[in-house]
Amino acid sequence: MIRLLLIGIGTGNPDHLTRAATKAMNEADLILLPRKGDAKSDLIDLRRTICAQVLTGPARIVEFDMPVRAAEPAYLDAVVNWHAAIADLWMEQAAIHLSGGGTMALLVWGDPSLYDSSLRIAARLGPQIDVHVIPGITSIQALTAAHGISLNRLAAPVLITTGRRLAQQGWPTGVDDVVVMLDGDCAFRVLPPQDLHIWWGAYLGMECEELAHGALGDVGPAIVERRAALRERHGWIMDVYLLRRATSEVN
């Protein structure tokens, strides 16, 4: 039996690690660190830094190369095939390094339950893998903290969606507050900017954190330019934003 720990590590700041996360890392026999190519070397460097700062036990750290997701027209099919390839890699590393059983850990950005595929991948591993989740600080929490705002308005709902869905379907019905994640192309550009405000953040919690907020019509174009420049500078970008439609309700 192999125990798999999916450990939420927040948005890249080692100070975001919970005590439970630190304890779980030190319980592991094996910690897997995925490499995602030279352009995203900062991501594995942050994981290495976290390990160096909190590990006191004999956990073995093993790095592996993540498979590349195929650029297939059918997005969901491409993701499913990609997840299968990642699951095979996890099992391969477990077979090499934990042939007699033990505890394997993966460090997950944010929280494993929110727009992360680790749990879906783990579900492919079979009954011999005992999965445990250690929650972490999400990019949404880091965004609202950085801007000093509440996520929800008084007694009002908030919808969390993706840039792909926002671009394809426009503003969701029935809500006035929308958090957008996994947006590679600034999907807010498809929306009429009237009465919309945006709170945007990139590299949240890191030294290179970037923030912007204001009326969408005023700051939206600047965010598009700024985002492109940051991606060029760092080779990757992680960002999230809250869109809020003006209403007559009390905030």
Results as ranks from 00 to 15, higher is better:
Pro112Trp: 13
Asn152Met: 13
Ser150Gly: 09
Pro73Cys: 13
Val133Asn: 07
Gly100Pro: 02
Pro127Lys: 05
Cys51Tyr: 03
Ala122Thr: 06
Ala78Phe: 04
Pro67Met: 15
Cys51Pro: 04
Thr49Arg: 15
Leu89Ser: 12
Ser118Trp: 04
Ile149Val: 15
Ile160Arg: 08
Arg48Pro: 05
Gln93Ala: 04
Ile137Arg: 13
Val62Tyr: 03
Leu106Lys: 04
Gly102Asp: 02
Ile149Cys: 09
Leu119Tyr: 02
Arg124Pro: 01
Thr103Asn: 01
Arg60Ala: 05
Thr173Tyr: 05
Trp82Arg: 14
Val80Ile: 15
Val54Met: 08
Met91Asp: 11
Gln128Lys: 10
Ser150Tyr: 06
Gly170His: 05
Phe64Ser: 02
Tyr115Val: 07
Ala84Arg: 15
Asp42Phe: 14
Ala142Gln: 10
Gln53Glu: 15
Pro172Asp: 10
Asp88Tyr: 00
Thr173Gly: 08
Asn81Glu: 15
Met104Asn: 03
Leu114Arg: 04
Leu119Pro: 00
Gly57Ala: 14
Ser117Pro: 00
Pro73Lys: 07
Leu76His: 06
Ala95Thr: 09
Asp88Asn: 06
Leu151Lys: 08
Tyr75Ser: 09
Ala94Ser: 03
Trp82Met: 15
Val131Ser: 08
Ala87Ile: 09
Asp77Lys: 12
Ile129Val: 15
Glu63Asn: 01
His132Ile: 11
Ile96Tyr: 01
Ile140Lys: 06
Thr56Met: 02
Gln93Thr: 00
Ile140Asp: 05
Val68Pro: 00
Asp45Glu: 13
Ala59Tyr: 00
Ala105Thr: 12
Arg48Asp: 12
Leu55Pro: 04
Glu92Thr: 09
Pro135Ile: 11
Gly163Lys: 07
Gly170Leu: 04
Lys40Cys: 11
Gln169Glu: 14
Ala145Asp: 11
Arg48Thr: 14
His132Gly: 02
Gln141Lys: 09
